[in-house]
Design a protein around this nucleic acid. Structure first.
Lengths: 323, 323
DNA sequence: CTGAAAGCGCTTACAG
DNA sequence: CTGAAAGCGCTTACAG
């Protein structure tokens, strides 16, 4: 079996405490003892056992990342940055994809209670009873989950406002909104609100299709929109999947973009992920959001005070779907 | 602090061993004792501590998944399925994205030695010294890493052969190969070999651009190909990124697809991820590969015998980039 | 600087 | 069926 700290101690002729001390920095250890211990360690090919260390220190050094799915540009990118941020802070990340099953989301809370992970970052679309989270170190994205659980988000309202104003400045006379409505209270709702406010301000009719759909129903949503508002010459699509579906569906029906209809999307096509023509879009500050989420979580884990909400500014990127 | 098994035992008026027994199935425990224990557990809001359990049982219940990047269709999809497979087998998955840094790949081996994880699935492009892996439970994808480390792959040779033959059957007279050459021995090399064999068999010239590039250099690679072999009327693109880049670059240069040049890709566009026109492609059996990888790994962890190599058949999907 | 001991929270033979 | 004890492999006061 693998060598333990006791084996090392015996071979070096010292106590286990001393071995532990050289393991953890080697401060207040005599140079020659240190050398002897190190020699024994390498001779025995010793590797300290994390499970023991963690049990003793009462921390796992792992955080959980819960996302609905991995196979989605936003979540994949978010996961990528979370992993990097965690790495920088000496944490590992446990990946959980809920596949839209509420049960799996609750499992994470269990993992925290069982001390399998020290905390979790929650990107979720489900309703949970606030009591369920009872004091667990948690951070959320785009959503206020419960009191005491901070969340990070992008400037949904302002970015949408800007997008719609942009369509107007590009000559659109009739502008619609297509989105997949979140099933829970979420910052994402501000997108619709911003759109409606701009319409009102300009005395333009509000053309909204914003249904609560699940992944996979985007094409049907786009069809519904086109049936109702096929005459719009500008469209704000409130998310990646919906934007993709809308463009495909519109072109299928013989419309040209941006000739017949100009499109601005929240989330765009995430750069090189796709080969699509570049959609004019609001690019979420995914990297910053991830880094902040990680920092907030660590503060929560360490019992420090954190703000309830952090908003990061997104970027407006002009592509080829507007004139 | 959180209640421990000792607290429960005291409250229920039994020994900790008994509590442990009801925790683990409740077999050979008297019904009434069991009830008493369960009552105490719920009254104390008791949750067993995984770290202690694991230290005692000498298993972490976690496997690591190492991929170059998350933000890539193949890897994201693979991660998704690995997570599902792990879940089914009662394992959690630790996500590590190497970002092409060899150091981070080695870190995983450390984590195994430190018993932070029970094993790992390695999707990697780097060379490692075989000794480094010394007996660790490992499974690899598309690559023979070292003796005793099984790997899963798709039928690279056959699928490529079929693709190139398909181009020929569709009237292509001059067919090229564009790919990003793996920097290590890998099954992926069979793609080039298959292409060359078919060319030879048909007495056609071999037009190959297959350089060892890193992510991000695909466009330059495509440009190089077009400069050298702009006259080809058929192209086999040996991977997702390269195919994407080639199509974009070809269209930029005024070529039509499939009019001027027909394209078949290894990996296609991964269904709904992108809004691209459907590329004719070899679809890797990602789900099966992931499931098999997980099963092989579990067997390795349990010390069972496993095959050195498992090949899964891929699917040929006709899209709009061929006639 | 260093050793012996206690303890992190479990599980598992071992007796009874 | 059940309790007391040993032990998983560490770290951390506590003495010296």
């Amino acid at each position: 079996m693998a060598a333990t700290i006791a084996d090392v101690a015996k071979m070096a002729g010292v106590g286990v405490g001393t071995v532990s001390r050289v393991l953890n920095g080697g401060k207040s250890v005599n140079e020659s003892t240190k050398r002897a211990v190190e020699q024994a360690m390498s001779k025995l090919n010793y590797t300290p056992n994390s499970m023991a260390k963690r049990l003793r220190e009462q921390r796992s050094g792992i955080i959980a990342l819960m996302i609905p799915v991995v196979y989605h540009p936003f979540f994949a990118q978010f996961a990528e940055y979370i992993e990097q941020a965690a790495d920088r802070h000496k944490y590992s990340v446990l990946l959980v994809a809920s596949q839209q099953r509420v049960q799996k989301e609750s499992n994470i809370i269990d993992k925290i209670k069982k001390r399998e992970v020290d905390g979790a970052i929650f990107v979720t679309h489900f309703v949970h009873r606030p009591e369920e989270f009872c004091g667990c170190p948690l951070v959320s994205v785009d959503r206020h989950l419960a009191d005491g659980i901070p969340f990070v988000t992008s400037d949904n309202y302002k970015a949408t406002e800007k997008s719609v104003e942009y369509l107007i400045s590009k000559g659109c006379k009739r502008i619609g909104y297509i989105g997949s409505k979140p099933q829970v209270e979420s910052e994402v709702e501000l997108r619709e609100k911003a759109y409606r406010d701009v319409m009102r301000r300009h005395g333009m009719e509000e053309c909204v299709v914003n249904d609560a759909i699940v992944h996979g129903e985007e094409a049907a949503l786009a069809q519904k929109y086109l049936k109702l508002f096929g005459d719009t010459d500008g469209v704000f699509a409130a998310g990646y999947s919906v934007a993709t579906a809308f463009c495909a569906e519109a072109e299928k029906q013989g419309k040209t973009i941006p000739g017949d209809v100009q499109v601005v999307a929240y989330d765009g096509m995430f750069g090189s992920w796709s080969d699509s023509h570049a959609i004019t879009c609001v690019e979420q500050p995914v990297e910053q959001m991830a880094y902040t989420a990680m920092e907030l979580l660590i503060k929560k884990i360490e019992g420090k005070e954190v703000p309830e909400k952090v908003v990061h500014e997104s970027k407006f990127v002009v592509g080829t779907t507007t004139k």
